[in-house]
Write a protein that binds this DNA or RNA. Structure first.
Lengths: 207, 207
DNA sequence: AACTTGAGTGTGAACGTTCATTCTCAACCA
DNA sequence: TGGTTGAGAATGAACGTTCACACTCAAGTT
């Protein structure tokens, strides 16, 4: 009885994972459209092109889907920072990121981050996921900075990282509402500020 | 028949306004606790210590209450900036605002702003209220800056204002989740950056 | 002074929906 | 045939909203 299982499990699990991805992806669309509480299972099912009951075969509850979305977002933020090819570039990249008319995908990520932050203020489980990711992200960033700027104390590095994070999230959140100021000038300011915080960065980073 | 009415109208309208304030205030509490979609009329009524039906005497719908909350927040942001006693001080004040453990009231305002920004990404009416307030706020700030820094072009002033706004909203949003970095160091960075953008500010502003 | 009136103020049950979740049952492989 | 996969009806709770009905109280009528 165990032999056939061993043979079939891998393909089944792969398929299941694909299905879960499909559901999460559909849920993301619905959440962007209607918010965490506004997105109904019916809408998610329709978007995923399957029946409601089907979804419950892969997720125990709506809450679990929400968690999956949250985990996906924070995971992407982590790897986005880590695999940025050249270490400290992330700061420069962020400076440029803004105002170049973002792809739909990027816009969704920002809206979802907004939604998640709001949800984290009242949903302890979500808050914990966000906090955990935040800690890892921060730790990694501080390590990176200290590698490039050994003269900085850990505290100083942490403060600068926090500042850049504020800049990053602030610009992300503002970019989902209105945007008027000249991108060129604004980018100049970002560059100046980041240059001041990370002097050796721009030599490589802004190419 | 008209004489008694004329005598009673003012007091009635005052009382009605008080009532509306009471409802909005209760709704704010519920929205902070459960989000715009999560807050139910029943909860709001309980919080306001009146029956559900009573609320509908003062507001035509839940949506109307949401609008009232949004308008309250953006109005407060506007006047908060305007009546800041000394013009450009708002930037300095913002630099200090962070990390001094905020009052509950301030925390609520931030969470609501978060909620509103999220709602604005999908509710056109809310989006328009936010946009309108944003335009007024930005206009006012740019005017202020140009008064103090006539050497700046309007575009340059607008870009600096936008940057400060990003900083302000970014710090507000981040302060509702986790906060680790040293407040002192972080404040130093804020000060440096703002000093660079508004050189004549700190002489007065940070006292 | 006692009574009637009627508008204003209040309640909470009821309505029609919609929600998340569960259940049923047919179709389909092996 | 037995286990998996599919759809979608059933369920009960909760939602926003409405409504019928009570209470209050000052003005008007005897």
């Amino acid at each position: 009885m165990s032999v056939p299982k061993e043979k079939k499990r891998p393909v089944k699990e792969l398929r299941d994972q694909l299905r879960r991805d499909q559901i999460v992806s559909a849920a993301r669309v619905c959440v962007v459209r209607h918010g965490f509480h506004g997105a109904s299972m019916g809408q998610i099912a329709a978007e995923a092109q399957m029946s409601v009951g089907q979804i419950y075969r892969y997720f125990p509850s709506k809450e679990a889907i929400v968690h999956a979305i949250v985990e996906g977002i924070v995971a992407r933020r982590l790897e986005w920072m880590v695999d940025d090819e050249k270490q400290i570039d992330f700061a420069a990249r962020f400076a440029n990121r803004r105002h170049v008319d973002a792809s739909d995908e990027e816009r969704c990520e920002r809206i979802l981050l907004l939604e998640i932050t709001a949800e984290a203020t009242r949903n302890p489980a979500v808050a914990e996921i966000v906090r955990a990711a935040d800690r890892r992200l921060r730790g990694q960033a501080v390590e990176l900075v200290r590698g490039n700027y050994p003269e900085l104390s850990e505290e100083e590095a942490a403060a600068r990282v926090e500042f850049v994070t504020v800049l990053s999230e602030g610009s992300a959140f503002r970019s989902v509402t209105e945007q008027i100021a000249s991108p060129t000038l604004l980018e100049g300011i970002y560059r100046d500020v980041l240059q001041k915080l990370f002097p050796r960065m721009t030599e490589r980073g802004l190419s």
